[in-house]
Design a protein around this nucleic acid. Structure first.
Ligand SMILES: [Mn+2]
Ligand SMILES: [Mn+2]
Ligand SMILES: [Zn+2]
Ligand SMILES: [Zn+2]
Lengths: 141, 141
DNA sequence: TTGCAAATAAGAACGATTATCATTTGCATA
DNA sequence: TATGCAAATGATAATCGTTCTTATTTGCAA
């Protein structure tokens, strides 16, 4: 999917740490990763990156539009590949599972409400914290 | 409005720092305050409280249901008096002004979306980051 | 190849928050 | 009203996620 050229196009040198981080997001198991997640996974696969580099690269990728940053509860930033289209999240309070959704009606109402109050929305953040009932949930009720 | 009895009812001793903090939320200018806001305002009015106490009291009030905590962008928790009814927020990116709103349609759609995905919502967080056009905005375009 | 700006790794520094602990205080009881 | 003591406080250390600093390394254009 992504290749060294993509970094170039984003105005970023194609360096080993950057390629490794990008690869994690493209080919890794989980879609939503914190800086610590990325750092530990890289260490785990024998890669030798510094934590500071991980933070720097994540921020650069965000600025370049390759990644999107979220502020879920828990105090740490979470990143994911930028799919181009906006979506919101449901987070399972038991197992941590993250589900994505997009609801046109919600998005439209947000615009309406803001407009009526004299605001022009630039960005928004919506998270639903919930209990899931999916089969694989390790905390199934 | 609130009195020492309210603290008692919440299982909290009526102490000076607690009364001062509560008073700030009830009679202060601003409705949404961070721990630092509370601390500085108390210092400013000659009260001698420790920052650690402010943090402790805010958390206790939250647990007791007197305050509600929000995680707006910016990294610090923001608290407000618990009005009993849920609402969401619009935050002006220029002047920091915070507006409250409640939209039944949005709330209903959230339930619907979650239900269809096999989730039962326990809590949610919605913030609109926007540019405001109110008269008093010090950064009016 | 070489040169050099850009990127890195390690660790210090940072801001928000929590933990520790000796001292003080609210308040129930005598 | 005086006393006892658990609970609360305030100073400060510690923690956690993140950013900054700086000496060293690296990508890459010439
Ligand atoms: Mn997502
Ligand atoms: Mn509010
Ligand atoms: Zn949305
Ligand atoms: Zn809501």
């Amino acid at each position: 999917m992504h290749r060294p050229e993509h970094l170039k196009n984003a105005g970023l040198k194609s360096t080993l740490p950057r390629l490794k981080v990008l690869d994690l997001f493209e080919n890794g198991k989980e879609r939503h990763l914190s800086a610590e997640d990325v750092y530990k996974q890289l260490l785990g696969s024998g890669e030798d990156v510094g934590l500071a580099t991980v933070y720097r690269v994540l921020t650069q990728f965000e600025r370049a539009g390759l990644l999107v940053r979220h502020h879920f509860e828990g105090g740490k930033s979470v990143f994911e590949l930028n799919k181009g289209e906006h979506h919101d999240h449901i987070l399972c309070l038991q197992c941590g599972h993250v589900e994505e959704f997009h609801d046109k009606a919600i998005e439209a109402r947000q615009e309406k409400v803001a407009g009526e109050l004299g605001f022009a929305i630039r960005d928004h953040s919506l998270q639903l914290y919930a209990d899931c009932t999916r089969k694989k949930c390790p905390h199934k009720p």
